[in-house]
Simulated scan of single mutants.
Amino acid sequence: MKKTVSSIFLALLFSYSATANTTVDNEKKEVNVSQSKVTWKGYKVTGAHDGTMELKSGHLEMDGNKLVGGEFVVDMTSLTVTDLKAGDGKEKLEGHLKSDDFFGVANHAESKLVFTSVKPLNKNSYTVVGDLTIKGITKPVTLVISMFEGKATATVKIDRAKYDVKYGSGSFFDNLGDKTIYDEFDLVVDLVL
């Protein structure tokens, strides 16, 4: 009887030890969307425009101190232009960017990025491949994320032609001259966790 009790006790002790030392699967760190910021910059032959968009939701997945995944949703209806002032073409450009000529926010109010691969670049930075969905079209993108003290910054170039954003694109139209708008635009995302 003592041998049976001892065996049960040892079995329970080992199973407790095994579960006590099991690491927690990826921890989700929610992004503080009200303090985080998404800025964009688009280029044309005669200059550039820039502005902001708001994050609707987002999180980073961590394994200890290492980034292993993430997902973000951007509110496309929040798109604003910051390089123009009210009455100076700001409202007109914002309306045009939200129209079907560009991002069609009436039918595509959100864009989404889901990480598919994360590789360390150095101590605080990662190369991330993710599936980016704009206007219902999903394509892979590569970006760099740097993390430090509860903040993260991501930079990415996006080719709008891959997402059926054709207006003023030399990839779709000939003889645009100085009316050409370049296909690639920049996004910088500053995250507060």
Rank of each mutant, 00 (worst) to 15 (best):
K151E: 12
D186M: 12
Y167H: 02
D159C: 05
K166R: 15
H96R: 10
G69C: 10
M76A: 01
D25A: 15
G136Q: 11
F102I: 07
M53P: 09
Y43W: 04
L79C: 02
M147F: 01
F148D: 15
F172Y: 05
T153R: 06
V74N: 05
K28G: 03
S15I: 15
T39Q: 07
V38C: 03
L55E: 04
T80E: 12
D178M: 09
A86G: 12
V38N: 04
S117T: 06
K28E: 12
A152E: 00
A154N: 01
E110G: 08
K28A: 08
V24Q: 02
L191F: 08
F14P: 10
Q35I: 09
L187Y: 11
K56L: 10
T127H: 09
K37E: 14
M1R: 12
L12M: 14
D131A: 13
A109L: 08
E61F: 04
G170C: 04
N175T: 00
T180K: 05
V5L: 15
Y163I: 00
L12S: 11
T138C: 03
E71W: 06
L60K: 06
S117Y: 10
D75M: 02
T22S: 14
V141I: 13
S15Y: 11
V118N: 08
T138K: 03
Y182D: 02
E110W: 07
L143E: 11
G150Q: 02
L84P: 08
